[in-house]
Design a protein around this nucleic acid. Structure first.
Lengths: 267, 267
DNA sequence: CGGGAGGTTGAGCATGTTCAAAGGATGTGG
DNA sequence: CCACATCCTTTGAACATGCTCAACCTCCCG
């Protein structure tokens, strides 16, 4: 079934300019004005070097931003010197949609590679919410997806063994990259060290290493030069007891698309 | 410092009728009309027995609801027969604020005790969002808090040992109960079995048992008849490396309260 | 080339699991 | 009001998964 999905239906012909547009399209098709509005958010750009904090724990939340290129993490440092990676951020991810409601950040956001982001002003955001209901629905969907990913991580950490955790994470990252058009066949760029994987999964780097070796030996994956190929996605998904439902790529419920169509024909 | 907080400042004199009002008040004081509007949501009520599903994984999301009384969990069943408890729901918790954007539930919600909920119609929700900006801000805050709790659980599962995890969970539950006025001194009602604690923390019931015994032996907690007393909150917080910042009980940022005051004086 | 970060290896060890059985508590029906 | 069933807690002992530590290797990149 999965293999069929991958080969049968080629990806929608959405231009690749903006990964956020690409991602939201998975949920809801956007009109031309919607798309223009969304993409004009990314008019300004900022760059960060590799392994640098974009947002620091304890700081006052800054503006919303969209990750355009590169990879980043949300993480927490613990008092014993270890750290926990909470989330991986990939292109198209929106950070902290409504974070102006909070006084301080309870975690940091740091880069893993050089990163390009588009800061979004609060006014820009407000405009989107008031004038572009499809876009705002899609943005809320995206934040629900993020929350679902947090829940899934909890399940992985609580109930899966080391092999299951690693397999799960590789699958999730694959599907997410695919959703923004950043996969080529079964491969995508994954610039993570084994330590970083371990920090995300509650495993030691040594153990991550051994299990990745095992996956390679069994022909499940190929990793070279920061590229990952999932030779057998079904195999990995089986190891992880992975079910991509939680990513909610199935599109918007009919109710909602109907609603928007009525809304738009009434204009 | 913590002890001081607990003893110095007695809790706001908010009537206890509705735990949701109580909780939101921690973030933002509400006007009388705001409060009335919020509490009129709970006009209808539904009851559920103990150990019953309110919402099942795979089902179509039903309406939003507020938990009024009792305790429930979000959880996932895995294919190997185990389950992971993702979140504990206590009175005042709002379920699935914007879940109408999704096609299917990716987890279940089940009761741990008999439970009373107030289903909220979508119109009721919409009314709140359009006519009561303070309430909607507070509801969004509450959903941010939930997300922060998910992140904290990830940190606990990824980086804390069994003692740390259990201590962390007890502290979190204490603070949350306190925020809705359901603590008495250092005690609150906690109708959880050790198996349920284990399912939330990725530990076996046996091990949970041994650690709870250890906590009791060291005079950190007293548990009897489903009541938990945190004899030494500081002690537990130290074991867990717990910092309640992530619960964001500090109130709304000044920017926001200013904004609302301007808004309201302009009327 | 040389330095440094990341990857690989082995061996001993620790934390927490599993399994099985027994001891309370609670609640229900006779 | 007792007897019984059930669920929860407690205990012990063997076991397993994954950690730590320390050393070595390899590939980049300057």
């Amino acid at each position: 079934m999965l293999v069929a999905t991958l080969s049968d239906r080629e990806w929608w012909p959405v231009p690749n300019r903006n990964p956020l547009t690409r991602k939201l399209w998975n949920f809801l098709p956007l009109s031309e004005p919607d798309r223009t509005a969304l993409e004009s958010l990314a008019s300004k750009e900022e760059c960060f070097a590799s392994h640098v904090d974009i947002v620091a724990e304890g700081s006052v939340p800054r503006s919303v931003f969209v990750l355009l290129e590169g990879m980043a993490i949300r993480y927490r440092n613990l008092s014993d010197g270890t750290r926990q990676v909470i989330t991986f951020l990939i292109p198209g991810d929106v950070c902290d949609l409504h974070v102006f409601l909070l006084k301080t950040m309870d975690h940091s956001i740091g880069t893993l590679t050089p990163v390009r982001i588009a800061p979004v002003s609060r006014d820009g955001m407000m405009d989107l919410f008031t004038c572009h209901p499809r876009v705002s629905a899609a943005l809320w969907w995206s934040s629900l997806q993020e929350e679902a990913m947090l829940r899934e991580r909890i399940v992985a950490l609580g109930r899966r063994d080391a092999r299951g955790r690693i397999a799960y994470l590789l699958c999730e990252l694959f599907w997410r990259h695919r959703a923004v058009g950043l996969t080529k066949g079964r491969s995508f760029s994954l610039p993570l060290t084994q330590t970083e994987l371990g920090d995300a999964l509650g495993l030691s780097a040594v153990h991550v290493n051994r299990i990745l070796q095992d996956f390679r030996k069994h022909g499940l994956i190929v990793m070279e030069r920061r590229k990952l190929e999932l030779v057998s996605l079904p195999g990995l998904q089986k190891i992880a007891d992975f079910n991509e439902t939680y990513l909610h790529f199935g599109g918007a419920p009919k109710e909602l698309t109907d609603y928007f169509e009525r809304l738009e024909s009434n204009r």
